[in-house]
Design a binder for these strands. Structure first.
Length: 261
DNA sequence: GGTATTTGACCACG
DNA sequence: CGTGGTCAAATACC
């Protein structure tokens, strides 16, 4: 068992998967070593991935992650604002949020949100600490219109036991469809999970809490999948798998994930 | 009335 | 002592 795991899958265009992790994510989290020597014995590894694997390191606790995004996407967690401060040499105030279940469940996760000075329409979001809460009420459920693949670079489908706040969906994604069933898509007794349907036909499924974030990278929006699975001794992501439209397992993606175990 | 946000005070740290 | 992070009372909202 490793201390923790951090995975970011970047999709820089519709038809290709990029494993370049040098986008807007400026994460202090490191990548753990390979979980099993046998795991990728028979899988070819792209040089880029291989190079990345060499730099895999165990992440230190507390985990922090900083990113810049133009869209305040609901990350599926319930946050309670507890402060706001003016920060020196910046034009915008910084807001402080803690997990709503800090006192109920002892969840120590916090985040900070601050508008960037150079591009006021963008926000710098810093996450601190892991979510140890079992929040099944606010898992995101976002169904995007996939009929028009030309004018939108992102299609996401989240399926969880919970529901997203519809008002937030309206404000963040005004073109989103609302004709989806309002009941949970997973049976209540199933493992907490999220499914991400990517525009290019790749579906990612995660069993355990996961945050999915939209980023902007080199003037092109892409999707990153950031997972962190809570365990007594740390985090692992061996339950994360990727499929194409035919439900074929994407080995390269699996291999990439193995790199982060 | 319960819950979330606001905002000045407080505190730790460099 | 200045700065950033947190606390908590007051306030707003539903």
């Amino acid at each position: 068992m490793f201390d923790n795991t951090f995975s970011v899958l970047s999709f820089s265009s519709i038809n290709e998967i990029s494993y370049n992790h040098t986008g807007d994510i400026q994460s202090s989290s490191n990548l753990g070593g390979q979980k099993s020597e046998d795991f990728n014995k028979n899988i070819k590894i792209e040089p880029q991935v291989e190079a990345k694997r060499r730099c895999c390191k165990r992440r230190k606790i507390p985990w922090t992650s900083t990113k810049v995004t133009s869209t305040l996407v609901d990350d599926g967690y319930a946050w309670r604002k507890y402060g706001q401060k003016a920060i020196h040499h910046t034009n915008h105030q910084r807001s402080y949020y803690r997990c709503t279940y800090k006192f109920d469940q002892g969840c120590e996760a916090t985040k900070q949100v601050q508008k960037t000075d150079d591009e006021p329409s963008k926000y710098k979001i810093t996450y601190n600490g892991y979510h140890t809460c079992k929040n099944h009420l606010r898992g995101p459920e976002m169904i995007f219109d996939s009929s028009n693949l030309e004018d939108s670079s992102i299609i996401l489908s989240f399926e969880t036991k919970g529901l997203i706040d519809e008002k937030q969906v309206d404000s963040y994604f005004p073109s989103m469809k609302h004709d989806q069933p309002k009941e949970a898509l997973f049976p209540l007794e199933s493992t907490y999970s999220q499914s991400v349907l990517l525009q290019d036909g790749i579906r990612a499924e995660v069993f355990e809490p996961v945050s999915v974030e939209l980023l902007e990278y080199e003037h092109q929006e892409m999707i990153s999948l950031e997972t962190y699975l809570a365990g007594n001794d740390g985090y692992e992501i061996d339950n994360l798998t990727l499929f194409d439209f035919s439900d074929n397992l994407l080995n390269n993606a699996q291999d990439e994930l193995a790199c982060c175990n």
